[in-house]
Design a protein around this nucleic acid. Structure first.
Lengths: 322, 322
DNA sequence: TTGTAGGCGTTATCAG
DNA sequence: CTGATAACGCCTACAA
């Protein structure tokens, strides 16, 4: 009989109401993901990682763009009380007390993609982004660069502070502290990177520039181009995040992967296991950064510049097809 | 008394349950947005446009990435019967009968960002993307280019078909049909564009390449670089969508804006008015494409190449600051 | 004015 | 094994 009913339901196009189901079951089959800026491809990579876990299981994902505004993030966390989602994955870049307090009293499970102070009672998927920046800086120094510049994000962010400290430690260790410069961009965006790099280049002539993320690095490349300096010929450039942008640029951008996609997956897995066992102690899954060397950091002499000579080069318009 | 209760509720951090509220009110205060590929920045622009309308009004947005798989889209539309959202905004690129049929019987309001066949009973925000491609092609011809190539998306998509037809009409009208070529990429992605452009360049030597969108154009630029051809010196390049990628590249990419952000806003507004008045006849708000000329299409002699000579150029490492 | 009952659509449980 | 019933939490309408 049950089968018969099922068949009839199918025929009539019956679909159970999600709100009623959620009310009854106490589960919405939805998760929220809060990021600073959907325009930054690193978050798109995280979204993909998360969805790769959730989509097959029938969970939906709500994406919130907070602009990394703490008030926004806090109100988002508080609204978990509405139980409109079963959990929240959040990738904050500032760790105010308010945010931490809100996290600790959240009404639903929260997983943080990012670095939390010790003792925070929340699941997290951190990465040592200072170590990541160190990889980039050491790579440039190893390539013979001596006048390093950092276009950093805001100092009052966690990644901003970590990456600035790592940069300074590398140039100091290499004995290049007197020949380096840093500039703080107002944001982790392309526009802010362009502006900061312009300001930097007014007072400093680097032979290598690191952007604290790929967007800042691309802004720097533009600022260098405005002055007629070529990459990597005159100046080597590296970024952080290893987003699609890095592959897509010409010259391709050397960048440090912080495993955005993988960390998204891990965060989603953590969320599911947290739901299954709410009383687990807080877990922390540390990821490891790695360098992806590309064209933008080739040593001056080195020969991986944009492409080999063409094999056969027909004259313009000498052939055609549809 | 009511005030007193309110205050107490506030103090205790009481938050009404969303599921119960939705069940009672019959409204979820959520909308879904379905796109082919969250990795394409043009959809990120649409998301921003939509959120600019919704966020202030307390609506949440669910983003679905369908991979432009019709089966996926159809099942998404059918699942509107669950009433987990108040409406769906969808940006499909293929218009199969199945999709149209599903649209016409959807259980919740749907707004389509894209071009529907005449007579479809759904709100839509179309644009003449053929006219858009025409702008790009005519711009290149006006710049003196004579051997035009098109790296198109799949022919079986609406934008693919429209843009191919527009390209052919322009080259024919300009008397350049015998000196042009087109290649079909398997997808509207960078990787597919790179692959298609490589194949194209094996048999054809263009002096101008149009990508059917910005990602395809960037793939083409990479393929050109592999052969040692410069942009815009040897080959002019133009894209479509005017995404952030176009501004960010060096040289910056000439591109045709299809008003993604604005159309997202319009779609969201339409959704709200549709909710307010469900019995309105289907509406269609047509947007207009416009060309944004940048460095990648400068005429060979023309002087807007990457940046003026620097004003003052300190020697490497000659100054520093933190 | 304040209080209470009913019903939104499901599903689990319990009685027949 | 089938079928009725209660409860999830909220809001509205109506009664006291």
């Amino acid at each position: 009989m049950a089968a018969k009913v099922r068949a009839a339901a199918e025929q009539l196009g019956y679909v159970p109401n999600a709100a009623a189901r959620s009310l009854r079951a106490g589960r919405t089959h939805q998760f929220a993901f809060a990021v600073a800026d959907v325009g930054n491809p690193v978050y798109v990579a995280m979204i993909r990682g998360i969805e790769s876990v959730f989509s097959g299981l029938g969970y939906r994902l709500l994406v919130h763009s907070t602009g990394s505004d703490t008030a926004d993030e806090v109100s988002l966390i508080e609204s978990l009380g509405k139980r409109y989602v079963d959990g929240l994955i959040i990738a904050p870049i500032r760790d105010n007390h308010r945010l931490l307090r809100a996290l600790s009293t959240a009404a639903a499970p929260v997983v943080v993609i990012g670095n939390l102070p010790d003792g925070a009672l929340v699941d997290s998927v951190p990465i040592d982004s200072g170590a990541g920046l160190r990889l980039a800086a050491e790579h440039l120094v190893a390539g013979g660069r001596q006048a390093l510049a950092l276009v950093n994000g805001p100092d009052d962010t966690v990644p901003g502070a970590e990456r600035l400290a790592a940069f300074e430690s590398v140039v100091t260790a290499a004995g290049l502290a007197g020949r380096s410069a840093t500039e703080q961009a107002s944001d982790f965006t392309y526009a802010a990177g362009l502006e900061a790099a312009r300001a930097l280049l007014l007072r400093f002539r680097p032979d290598a520039v690191i952007g604290s993320n790929d967007l800042l690095a691309l802004g720097a490349i533009r600022a260098l181009a405005e002055r007629g300096w070529t990459v990597p010929g005159d100046v080597a450039v590296a970024g952080v995040d290893d987003t699609d942008l890095a592959r897509m640029h010409v010259p391709s951008l050397t960048s440090v992967s912080l495993e955005a996609g993988v960390r998204g997956q891990i965060a989603a897995d953590m969320m599911l296991s947290r739901l299954a066992e709410p009383d687990l102690p807080p877990r922390r899954h540390v990821a490891l950064p790695h360098l992806v060397a590309r064209e933008s950091s080739q040593p001056p002499g080195g020969g991986m510049a944009p492409g080999p000579a063409p094999a056969t080069v027909p004259a313009p318009g000498s052939a055609h097809a549809g």
